[in-house]
Nucleic acid binder design. Structure first.
Lengths: 158, 158
DNA sequence: TCCATGTTAGTCAAAATGATCAGTGATTCC
DNA sequence: GGAATCACTGATCATTTTGACTAACATGGA
């Protein structure tokens, strides 16, 4: 339905936050809690699911719970003419969770996970060997200071 | 129940991946599809929800859908003796989605969002002014090359 | 003003849920 | 070897929820 551009409003955010606190709550009770009609909540949740505003459910999985307790940031420089090839190759590495292109010196910033430091070396090598990638620098993450969240953001807008 | 250490097994992963493809599917049909008994799926989903292996639902929200279409990576150096203060202060900034401490030169690597480049400047300033933070360097993200995913990882283990 | 949209509030039958239980296989531990 | 533990199956049950539909109301824009 809605392509990519759907903007969540206050009601959407309240629903999402309420679901964080009580993920299994039935629509009816949720509606009561928020002071809305059931139909409204139902419509909203349906819309949310189809709006493209949410990442897939599996993105909630903490890598540590599938035995990937080691996390790293890999910055990569690349031969710009082979950008798309590099992206394609990176996509094929399961341990690559995310990759962004920042402004500045670094061409690509890659978030990767591994089983242990030794495994991280392997992953890091796989990344380095991607076509188009000329140089990488891997930093293991020592501490998850603030684990990924959007709660504060959602609350803030309210 | 389970604290933080629960390891997802093959069945858990299959359930999660199936839910990605069809998020609203009822437990019964899901069980059929996976060739499991309903009770099993029910137990698994319950356990998953309580295991701490999943981030809160709201972490699925794409910041762009709440008007934060601009994303940035901020690297920060800090006065190590004020680490905890800095963390506390950063936590209070809603636009700070994540913060990790990598090995190497950078003390903290912060993922932040903003409404637009102008707003990013404001957020960036807020970060810089956190107690304990001595220097920051902000890079706007130009392109989301691989959006955050765990699908490949979950599939890979199977 | 009229129209479109989103909300409320209510109904309905159909379906799913959570809670059980006994039986079975696999694994571990003694 | 045997006992105990654990997870899965397949089944039943009453209760609840769901999705789909109404009609009425409010709001905001054309």
């Amino acid at each position: 339905m809605t392509p990519e551009s759907y903007q969540l409003d206050d009601t959407d955010r309240r629903i999402l936050l309420a679901l964080d606190e009580d993920p299994r709550v039935p629509t009816m009770m949720l509606a009561q809690r928020l002071g809305l009609a059931r139909g409204t909540v139902q419509t909203r949740m349906e819309r949310l699911a189809n709006s493209g505003a949410l990442r897939p459910n599996s993105s909630r999985v903490k890598p540590a719970s599938v035995g990937r307790g080691v996390s790293a940031v890999v910055s990569a420089e690349l031969d710009q003419s082979h950008l798309e090839e590099a992206i394609a190759a990176l996509s094929l590495i399961p341990e690559v969770l995310e990759c962004v292109a920042p402004a500045g010196d670094t061409d690509l910033l890659i978030r990767a996970v591994a089983k242990d430091p030794d495994d991280l070396y392997r992953v890091s090598e796989e990344i380095r060997l991607c076509p188009g990638i000329t140089r990488t620098s891997t930093s293991m993450i020592l501490r998850d200071v603030i684990p990924y969240r959007t709660t504060a953001l959602l609350n803030h807008l309210g």
